[in-house]
Nucleic acid binder design. Structure first.
Length: 446
DNA sequence: TGGCATGATTATGC
DNA sequence: GCATAATCATGCCA
């Protein structure tokens, strides 16, 4: 660029008529004799420039070399410098520093929390456990779903790292003192180096300032940053979808196991006068059944409503559980333990949880079963009569025909005329087995 | 595969 | 906040 021959009358040929610098060059270099020939020269040069991208690499290389060596090249270069100076002014305002990327930070944090980025161990299972806890899930039957969740999370993690590896930090930026924020990743650095080389090469044919190169590098880094951001965003989305599916799966209905259903039923039928377990009782039941307290609440809610809707249908079940409870009570009584606290399925492990109400309900059941009219407290006090009564119940349940049909054995006397359950404070024995909506006969009519 | 059983959810009332 | 009633969605079984 040391010697810059002046361009001459290129106006028409290059279509830069409006450019004062070019005019200046043209004027400075105007020669009367060889004007047409030079016009032709410039036209040829520009034509070559315009078509250079259409040519093969070798051909383009050769032509590029020819252009670089062309005598008109320095003049053309000067023109380009002037044009550039003008245009750079107009684009200067467009360059704005991006604010610190809070979103990227959020994504990073989330990926870390979900166990996708960062140390692998514990991450997925912790997230799975959290998901399970959020869904109020059961502890015992979770392991399969957890492992499924972990496996899928691991897949996501693997894909994420495979993709990220392409941009992984391998080397420090070449220019430590550079003003440009360097992304420490190999692909970015490689690409940046490539572009910089290209620009340096191009700077021989067109004016490229170091600032421009820096700007270009900045653009490249931003692009790479945006790719990384997209990768992280997609990964986060995948994790979110996985998580929501996991939670949805946990929301799926699973029948409780037989033992849990029996425990709940036994409690329900032994508390038929007031089937509203206290929080404590719910917790106890939940523990026994390996379900959550809210599942216990759901179960009782459903049971109450369905029982009330179709008492007749539940008669047999009621009889069965009454008999069972009775057997249990008898067993406890005859063994002398908890004499005044009739055993229920629930009291087996932790007596006293609902023993008091149990006794009342159980005796209420017994009362309707054998047709006698005991008061709960009386029966509770008289273990021997209770046992006798229970024996009677058992014999009936076993198909003993003494005039009482099986479906007449149990009375839903807890339900009042309005279809609601009696006040728990109301002694259950007050209700006559043969009176009101809760009577044996009215039930069988169902 | 249809019908019933059953756990969960939602709307509503108190 | 809890209970009820209705409803949904799924599991189970003949």
């Amino acid at each position: 660029m040391d010697e810059q021959p002046r361009l001459m009358h290129a106006h028409a040929a290059v279509g830069m008529s409006g450019h004062p610098g070019l005019s200046q060059h043209i004027q400075d270099n105007t020669g009367a004799n060889d004007g047409d020939g030079r016009k032709q020269d410039i036209g040829d040069i520009l034509q070559q420039i315009m078509t250079i991208t259409d040519q093969s690499l070798d051909e383009a290389q050769a032509r590029k070399h020819a252009l670089n060596c062309h005598r008109m090249k320095p003049a053309l270069f000067n023109v380009l410098c002037e044009i550039k100076e003008k245009t750079v002014l107009s684009i200067r305002g467009a360059q704005e520093e991006e604010p610190p990327d809070a979103q990227l930070m959020r994504l990073d944090n989330m990926l870390l929390a979900e166990g996708v980025s960062g140390p692998e161990k514990g991450g997925g299972s912790a997230a799975a456990a959290a998901a399970a806890a959020a869904s109020g899930g059961v502890g015992a039957d979770n392991s399969a779903e957890h492992s499924d969740y972990r496996a899928k999370l691991s897949q996501i993690r693997q894909i994420y790292h495979t993709e990220l590896e392409k941009y992984e930090q391998v080397s420090k930026p070449a220019k430590a003192n550079s003003q440009i924020p360097m992304l420490n990743n190999m692909a970015c650095n490689e690409f940046t180096t490539h572009v910089m080389n290209l620009l340096r090469e191009q700077s021989r044919t067109r004016p490229i300032s170091p600032k421009e190169i820096e700007r270009m590098v900045g653009i490249i880094h931003r692009k790479f940053s945006s790719i990384q951001m997209q990768l992280k965003q997609s990964t986060c989305e995948a994790v979110m979808i996985l998580r929501s599916r996991f939670l949805d799966a946990r929301r799926k209905r699973r029948n409780f196991n037989k033992q849990a259903t029996e425990i709940l039923n036994e409690y329900f039928y032994s508390h038929l006068s007031n089937p509203y377990p206290s929080e404590e009782a719910k917790e106890e039941l939940a523990k026994k059944c390996s379900i959550t307290v809210s599942q216990v609440s759901n179960w009782f809610g459903n049971k109450r409503i369905r029982y009330k809707k179709n008492i007749g249908k539940f008669q047999e079940e009621a009889n069965m559980y009454a008999a069972r409870t009775a057997v249990s009570a008898a067993s406890v009584s005859t063994h002398g333990s908890q004499a005044n606290s009739p055993s229920t399925p629930n009291s087996a492990g932790s007596a006293g949880s609902f023993s008091m109400s149990n006794s009342g309900d159980l005796f209420m059941s017994v009362q309707s079963l054998n047709g006698d009219s005991y008061q709960g407290s009386q029966v509770g006090a008289n273990v021997q009569s209770q046992v006798d009564t229970l024996r009677h119940v058992i014999s009936q349940t076993g198909g003993y025909s003494d005039g009482l049909a099986a479906n007449q054995m149990y009375s839903p006397q807890g339900i009042n005329a309005n279809g609601g359950w009696q006040d728990p404070t109301t002694p259950s024995s007050v209700t006559s087995p043969t009176e009101g909506p809760g009577s044996v006969h009215s039930d069988t009519s169902n």
